[in-house]
């Protein structure tokens, strides 16, 4: 059974207030008012002096279980929301691999599930390690991106993007944070993402909560659990309001959804569930044996949920 051995994160010190994200391609005054008042979005994390390689490397450097065991890493996977856009031959994931000395690792990127690609990468890492069958082998899943253009600084009517990163060390089997189930569903008719025509955008909004609730329930069911068995949900940080509504649909108590990072970091692409994992552990919200759920939605549109046991 796939297990996450360790999670490390990097949260840069700089912040940009939501009100500063206005302008062409950004938020309008009504967006800012609603984001602050109802969505619980206050500011977003920014790493103004660092590039993508720095962002990813900073998270990986926090893994205590990586030092001295670099030769065990078989796969280095960067889970991305946006397809990599760097001038050839620059490649951040390869720079991280070389910088960390992961000479035996196959380095690649997954983007197909957009912001839900982080959970996809954990699932994929587990499958690849299982196929290899080496219990000493590990995969390193990195997440986090630069909000480098107006298009990726905000999601219209939904969220504002933050720059923070996470590194998750994945193993074939283990006692820490075992993956009990994974449910994902892609609705390809929404593949245009933030450029959906209004008719489809309306359908996406109408279906969003039922689709997300569907994968949450499916993941819980496949884990042999009930919703009430979950100690906490570690969500994507798109906004507080959408989680309040989802909790009404499920139903699930909203005070067991970790939303403390929404106003502090914003939606950090694929890294949110892992950033929230660290927050939950450090706050004592996850105890040994607790079952919890990570959830994320990627524009395009993919709905994903993963149940783990701490």
């Amino acid at each position: 059974m796939t297990a996450i051995e360790e999670v490390a994160t990097f949260v840069p010190a700089a912040r940009t207030p939501i009100g500063d994200l206005t302008g062409p391609g950004g938020l309008g005054p009504t967006d800012v008012r609603v984001f602050q008042r109802y969505f619980g979005l206050r500011e977003v994390a920014r790493d103004p002096d660092g590039g993508l390689t720095h962002l990813l490397r900073a998270a990986a450097d926090g893994l205590t279980g990586l030092r001295g065991r670099e030769d065990r890493i078989r796969y280095l996977i960067h889970a991305r929301t946006v397809e990599s856009a760097q001038p050839y031959p620059v490649c951040a994931v390869e720079e991280v691999r070389d910088g960390l000395g992961l000479d035996g690792a196959m380095a690649f990127t997954v983007t197909q599930h957009a912001c839900a690609s982080g959970l996809l990468a954990v699932d994929l890492a587990g499958r690849l390690l299982a196929q290899d069958g080496d219990p000493a082998a590990r995969a390193l899943v990195l997440s986090g991106e630069k909000a480098f253009t107006a298009d990726v600084r905000t999601i219209p009517e939904t969220s504002a993007m933050g720059e923070a990163s996470a590194a998750a060390l994945v193993r074939l089997d283990g006692r820490t944070d075992r993956v009990l189930s994974y449910a994902t569903r892609t609705e390809g008719r929404f593949h245009l993402g933030r450029r959906l025509p209004e008719r489809l955008a309306e359908q996406f909004r109408a279906e969003y909560f039922d689709r997300l609730a569907g994968v949450v329930r499916a993941a819980v069911r496949r884990a042999g659990l009930r919703l009430a068995d979950l100690a906490v949900i570690l969500p994507h940080n798109v906004n507080r309001h959408s989680w309040i509504r989802l909790c009404q649909v499920l139903p699930f108590p909203v005070d067991r959804v970790l939303l403390t990072n929404v106003p502090l970091l914003g939606h950090c692409f694929c890294a949110d569930p892992f950033l929230n994992y660290r927050t939950a552990v450090e706050a004592g919200q996850l105890r040994r044996g607790d079952r919890y759920l990570m959830a994320s939605v990627g524009l395009g549109a993919t709905f994903s949920a993963m149940v783990l046991q701490h």
């Binding site: 009504t30 008012r33 609603v34 109802y38 009517e157 939904t158 209004e198 909004r205 309001h241």
Partner: peptide
């Protein structure tokens, strides 16, 4: 009428 999401919340505000 198409009053959804952010606009509906703005009306609430």
């Amino acid at each position: 009428y198409g009053l959804h999401s952010v606009l509906a919340l703005a009306l609430g505000a």
